[in-house]
Design a binder for these strands. Structure first.
Lengths: 339, 339
DNA sequence: TTGTAAGCGTTATCAA
DNA sequence: TTGATAACGCTTACAA
């Protein structure tokens, strides 16, 4: 039983394909009775226009791609990506754009656009090489819509949706200084990743500004286990630091777990501060720098839609802020599952 | 600057489109020099085959749809879905199938298949009406591939990937009985949802089997806030139950938060048991019934791929098991961030 | 070894 | 108001 096509309807009704096509689009040029007839047969026979054929003639697929730069395992283990995805999807859905999703270690960012599989693309800026940026820029000139979440290592004319990490970091440092800390350690993201370097720099500056000493910097791989390892390493060297800062919440979670296994306590033995403020952070009482992940995702999608529709959209500006919770201040009232 | 097509290459080389098409597919019929020539020009000119055109002639898109039955907000707030998605993506990616994603309150399950936008579909069985099942069954007969995660309310010939919830539930009840509990309360999922009813029934039976009394059943909406509300309600009525069971971890998290705000403690004041065993459960020390969400997602995708490729795949069988942690046993050694 | 031509299912431009 | 007809970009018999 083949799928029913426009042709089939036309033949059964003894009219031209174009008539059917128009009738189904409620073209006013088509007489009411004809439209009704066509519509009825279409419903009865379960006709549905073929997406590929449509895309071919329209030169657009109506799909937006979302490509994530790491394995599915890595990506979905981190609630940060869920939040981003949530933001993206919450705009894509009502706008009528399905999302094509890819999570791969070495993604070919441009391909879906080049194959006209998607009309627009959302990617994480931090993972894009200079060459990839250039290719995407060229595609945008040809009509594709692209938005990056997070700044890429090189400057670009692409729409970049970012969030100023300084306010939150500054507030965190102020908080530490105020609560008597003087020496801290930083568990940054991957040493060679520009975004991790930038964030580390922000910490350095803010720490200095508040008179805090950065005792030690180690690099984690942004995973739970990486955070646990870093924590063990810091603990084993009998660290002087009274507070540990983490490149993301996931590593901070790993650290909490490692501390727990070693009968170490936060904040009694060491203060712990994360970055992202994903949902479990609130549950665990993790002090962290809040990033508006949902909004970033939504903004990226909104921008892509605006680019495609040719409508104007004034870019939103986003900032981080520090959320003090249990792991950074013993004297704060919030408990284990505190807000 | 229009996108370069097969036609363009053919003209520039003075050969036929078909020759180019074959050469690019390394067709052995084409002479080596011609193949090289074609390949070179294709690379230089940045040629990429148009996905829609390909789909049209191949009558297949090479895409698998994943449709989730609730809003993006709801879906991505629950780490359970991340785990599913992770499983699905981790099979889809290496198999070369991009995922088309939709999260909507009232999804039209069949449409993507009917439009030939996707070759296969993964959906949550629990959300499908009888009518929707029938439509999907018909589409499968016509060559579509479908796999459901979780059993639908009505029986179906579709491939259903499930997980036996009884073992874990039984183990949980045994654990409760052994640790001295006699009366428990259940915060089930939505009252009218068949899957929630089935799970409640499983609890009832296992509780009876272990001589435990089900004191009270309330229904939550499977959200964090819903769990918190349920917990407040149970607490306010001065409940007799010494243990509360939850339809999913997310509600249990909400309950923990609500308890915390009321200076109530788990497990000292009441034991808490969740369902799913999402990542934060381990971090929070939540006792829960483990569900192999990742594996369920992977199995569904594997099944879809097998259906499409026409290869055989013997369906995996999955079971739950109980994971005792801090919230159900004060005397267990695991701490706050315990395993 | 390569070319011709038909077809995939729609849409859009002309005419009629 | 409707009908031919030519795209859209690629694949695949069938010829040559």
């Amino acid at each position: 039983m083949r799928k029913v096509t426009l042709q089939d309807l036309a033949e059964q009704l003894g009219v031209a394909r174009s008539t059917v096509s128009r009738a189904l689009r409620d073209d006013l040029q088509i007489s009411a009775p004809t439209r009704a007839k066509v519509r009825r047969l279409a419903d009865e026979s379960g006709y549905h226009p073929n997406a590929a054929a449509r895309a071919l003639t329209h030169r657009s697929s109506g799909v937006i791609g979302l490509v994530l730069p790491r394995s599915a395992r890595f990506v979905f283990a981190n609630p940060y990506f869920s939040d981003l995805l949530d933001g993206v999807a919450s705009v894509a859905e009502p706008a009528g754009f399905p999302l094509l999703l890819s999570a791969s270690r070495r993604p070919d960012y441009a391909r879906w656009l080049q194959e006209a599989r998607v009309d627009g693309l959302i990617a994480l800026g931090s993972s894009l090489s200079n060459h990839e940026l250039e290719v995407l820029e060229r595609l945008v000139k040809q009509g594709s819509a692209v938005a990056l979440i997070g700044a890429p290592a090189h400057s670009t004319s692409l729409r970049v949706v970012t969030c100023d990490e300084h306010p939150g970091i500054d507030q965190a440092c102020e908080h530490l200084a105020r609560t008597g800390h003087t020496r801290v350690a930083l568990v940054a993201g991957p040493a060679r990743a520009p975004y991790a370097q930038a964030r580390a720099r922000a910490w350095r500056e803010a720490l200095a500004h508040h008179g805090l000493t950065l005792d030690k910097v180690v690099h984690g791989d942004d995973t739970f286990e990486g955070g646990a390892e870093a924590a063990r390493a810091l603990r084993d060297r009998g660290d002087q630091a009274s507070a540990w800062l983490f490149g993301n919440d996931l590593m901070a979670f790993g650290a909490l777990r490692a501390l727990d296994e070693a009968e170490f306590r936060a904040p009694e033995d060491v203060a712990i501060i994360g970055f992202d403020d994903v949902m479990p952070a609130a549950l665990l009482g993790l002090s962290t720098v809040h990033q508006p992940s949902h909004e970033l995702g939504a903004e990226a999608m909104t921008s892509v839609v605006a680019q495609l529709r040719g409508t104007v959209h004034t870019d939103g500006r986003y900032v981080t802020h520090f959320v003090p919770r249990r792991t950074s201040a013993a004297f704060l009232t919030s408990g284990g599952v505190g807000g």
